[in-house]
Nucleic acid binder design. Structure first.
Lengths: 190, 190
DNA sequence: ACCTGAACACCGTTCAAGT
DNA sequence: ACCTGAACACCGTTCAAGT
């Protein structure tokens, strides 16, 4: 006798993400998710392969959202302006979704790492800006410099690593301007 | 009847660190550590409070080692040279101790985060260099820029996030020179 | 003073049995 | 076609009992 599903992958992903933000990755258990959607843990295995698979799906969801944000931030055509929007958007995304953000580049098991394609369009938007700023020869290296700095900054910030006083917002803006400067300087020199 | 301890905190920390590098954080279980040192899991609780405590001790050990490395790298007195040494030393430490490195700024539970003091002397060495390079007014912000970039770069690298081709070593050197440039440029301008 | 087995509460996961 | 309880192997942790 076929019975209609009481939940769905989408529902599981959304629920998992809420739990992740509220209680962290350790709190994201199959039993917790099951309880939240109103079934027993074994039922989840009709919808996802296992816990790692569920986490991977959440990560992909997050990566898609971040990518869309970056894509939209790079819209004026002026590379420095776009880079500022991208960096600030990146940071504010991390602030509002700290748990989700930790999944993307975190030192986590290979199993739930997101595929390169998911982040591709966001990367393209970034490279477009750095290409205009640092020249096409250094576009990729410049993009890596920007994203490394931005990711490092927000991940340290979220980890509570900036504990020597000083205004953290100011430090972010300082770094952003200096890096944009440095990349444009490179272009002028070439 | 007092019996001599068959293990010690130091022994546990060292063993835990080996397991961490070999099998990742999930593989670092109390039973695994106990088996490795030749006792049963409950015995570990005579030496550490619990698993989180053991991980915290490992983190502190790692932080101390990294700090010492940074401290020693900054030795020539020339800020740009010292910054290069610090950044490269930082990166090579992460490469040889990827599991341990992940503990320091990772998006991990508060319980095993290391105390600020442990990283203090390394931070001082870094700030000395950035102060000479970017001026004392921006020393802290400049140090945050450098460390954010370096940490972001190596953590993305370790996470396998640089998947668009290009030479990753070159990207590191590119970013390093541009950032040093940008910070010195700031000094000249003031 | 340290170590142990037994026990408890919690995981993830499988599977046969229910509807 | 989905959901369930029971079961298994694994955790971390506590504790009384051993030496």
């Amino acid at each position: 006798m076929p019975t209609p599903a009481r939940t769905s992958v989408e529902n599981l992903i959304e629920t998992a993400r809420q739990i992740l933000e509220a209680e962290g990755l350790e709190g994201l258990t199959m039993q917790r998710v099951a309880a939240e959607v109103g079934v027993r843990a074994p039922s989840l295995y009709k919808h996802v392969r296992n816990r790692a698979d569920l986490i991977r799906l959440v990560t992909e969801d997050v990566a898609r959202q971040l990518t869309k944000l970056v894509e939209r931030a790079a819209s004026t055509g002026d590379p420095a302006t776009d880079l500022r929007s991208i960096a600030r958007g990146f940071r504010s995304f991390a602030h509002t979704n700290p748990g989700a953000y930790g999944l993307i580049f975190g030192p986590l098991a290979d199993e739930w790492r997101t595929a390169p394609e998911t982040l591709a369009t966001g990367t393209e938007a970034l490279i477009r800006s750095t290409s205009a700023l640092a020249g096409p020869d250094h576009a990729l290296e410049a993009a890596r410099t920007v994203v490394a700095w931005a990711h490092g900054f927000v991940s340290m910030e979220l980890a509570g690593a900036f504990r020597m006083g000083g205004d953290v917002d100011d430090a972010f803006e300082f770094g952003l301007e200096r890096i944009i400067d440095a990349l444009s300087a490179g272009e002028r020199r070439t």
